[in-house]
Each structure stands twice: as C-alpha cells, then as structure tokens.
C-alpha cells in the first residue's frame, strides 16, 4: 500500500478546476477503484458514470494522464508511484458534472444511418441464410461497446469540432458493418461521402489506438468504406466498368450450401 497523488477535474462545462487528492492505493487497484475510494472518503459528491467494471458497458470512459481510457480497465501499476495521475472527463463532449459527459450527440448520429434492409429472396422458412465466412468481417465491428473513446480522440471532432459534418469513427464502423452485411441491399455510399464525412477522416488511426475492444476501426472499417467511395466516385476503371457492364446486382449467399 502506498499513498499516491491525483488531480481530478471538478466542475461543469463552463468552469472547473483540477482538484488535488491523495489516497492509499493497493495492489491490483484500477483507476475506477481509486475514484470510488476518493468518492467514499474525501468527495462524496464527485460525479462518475460507471456500470459493469469489466470493460464491457463502455460507461467509465475518461482521460487518464491525458489518454482516453476506460477507468475500469486501467491498472494503477501502469503509472509510476511518485507521479501525479490526472483524471479528466472526455474532452470532446459537454461536461455535465466532474467526470460525467453528455454523449447524447452520438445517439443522434446513429439515427441518421439507414437501418439494415435484408434481401427478401434470402428469407427461407427457417429464417435468413448466410454463412460464417460472410459475416466474419462485420462481426469485428459488433464488438463495439459504445464507450465513445474513439469519438473522443478523433481530432476531427475533438479539435476541429466538425460534429455537424462528420459522424465519427464509431458510426463509420456502424456503416461498415451494414455495408459489409451479406444480406443488406441498402446503399449508403452517397451519404457516406456527402453527409457522414468520410473525406474528413485523415486516417491518423487514433480511434484504433484507443479502442478497448481492439477493433481495427481505421484499417478494417473506415478505409474499406473510403475504398467503396473511390469505387463509386473516383476510380476511372471501376466507373468505366459500370458504364460498360452496368451496376451489378449484389450477390447473395446460396440458400443451399
């Protein structure tokens, strides 16, 4: 057990301060444990959003020593015993109180995306037919716990405040999971380019770096979507191919393997 120093943001969206705390840290503690300890012993009104404490609910997102992380998955032994650990709310979203942010903007982005439209010819008496290898890619994106750390670290939203023109990495992979769905026959490529802001992402991969589920957001989600935009709007070879051979109908998994 050792006494460690912390600076925790206390305040709202307009004003706040970094408040100093010192508390005993025991082996095996995570940052969320420390916050709970400080809340119990020194600052009963310290606001923190948390739920599962297992890295699966995505509630306790914050910035620890300036890095976006889940506090429940960040062990205290990552930090030197003599350093002061700073704990701040996510920078990209409005602060409600202390470490709790208003992330409701994200929900509005989700509503902008056209929902899945399943091909009716793939429906059988037993349900829709598809195979594991068809859904391998999209399943990676289904691991998302919506912690919004990727939205928080994305500089397009964080520094340039382009919330009106870029949906952010989380919703880019939501679009990717639908576009790559083997049974989906909806077309979201035009709005991906014109409304969702695929061109605003400059591939700096910070979203991938901070993802607690280790989803390859940029390489497997955003870049493939950018490639589909290029197919449609920029590659003269594929554009010419469509002019000559027409738009090919999406192939659907066979009903009988």
């Amino acid at each position: 057990m050792a006494t460690r120093k912390f600076q925790i943001y206390r305040g709202d969206n307009e004003k706040g301060e970094m408040v100093n705390f010192e508390t005993e840290v025991m082996e095996g503690m995570v940052v969320l444990d420390v916050i709970h300890k400080i809340q119990a012993e020194q600052a009963n009104d310290l606001a923190i959003r948390w739920n599962c404490k297992a890295g699966k609910c995505g509630s306790c997102s914050m910035e620890i020593n300036g890095k976006p992380k889940l506090s429940c998955m960040t062990r205290m032994n990552e930090y030197k015993p003599d350093e002061t650990t700073t704990i701040t709310p996510m920078k990209t979203f409005p602060v409600i109180k202390d470490l709790v942010c208003d992330v409701s903007w994200n929900y509005t982005q989700n509503k902008r995306i056209k929902p899945v439209k399943l091909a009716p010819e793939s429906k059988t008496e037993k349900g829709y037919v598809m195979y594991q290898k068809d859904v391998d890619r999209a399943q990676e994106f289904r691991k998302c716990i919506e912690c919004y750390l990727c939205q928080n670290v994305c500089h397009v939203l964080r520094d340039h405040d382009k919330k009106d023109s870029f949906v952010g990495p989380r919703f880019m992979i939501r679009v990717a999971s639908l576009e790559m769905h083997p049974l989906d026959i909806e077309d979201r490529i035009p709005e991906l380019k014109n409304d969702f802001g695929s061109g605003l992402c400059n591939i700096t991969k910070c979203c991938t770096d901070v993802c607690p589920e280790h989803i390859h957001i940029t390489d497997n989600g955003i870049i493939p979507l950018k490639e589909r935009v290029i197919d449609r709007f920029y590659d003269p070879v594929t554009i010419l191919g469509r002019k000559i051979f027409g738009v090919r109908k999406k192939k659907l998994p066979p009903l009988n393997p």
Binding site: E63, G66, K67, P68, K91, V153, H155, V156, R158, D159, H160, K162, G197, G199, L200, C201, N202, T204, C206, D209, V210
Partner: peptide
C-alpha cells in the same frame, strides 16, 4: 499536425470552413 499525436492538440485551421481533411 492533424493531430501531432493522439489526444495532443491539432494545428488550428482557420478560414470559413476550417479543417477540410481529404475533402
């Protein structure tokens, strides 16, 4: 400097539209 590193402040963009990325 867009951004220099993750969670490190970007070079501010000026002008009417500001940051344009790859558009």
């Amino acid at each position: 400097g867009t951004p220099p590193a993750c969670a490190v402040g970007s070079l501010p963009r000026k002008g009417k539209e500001g940051y344009k990325g790859e558009t």
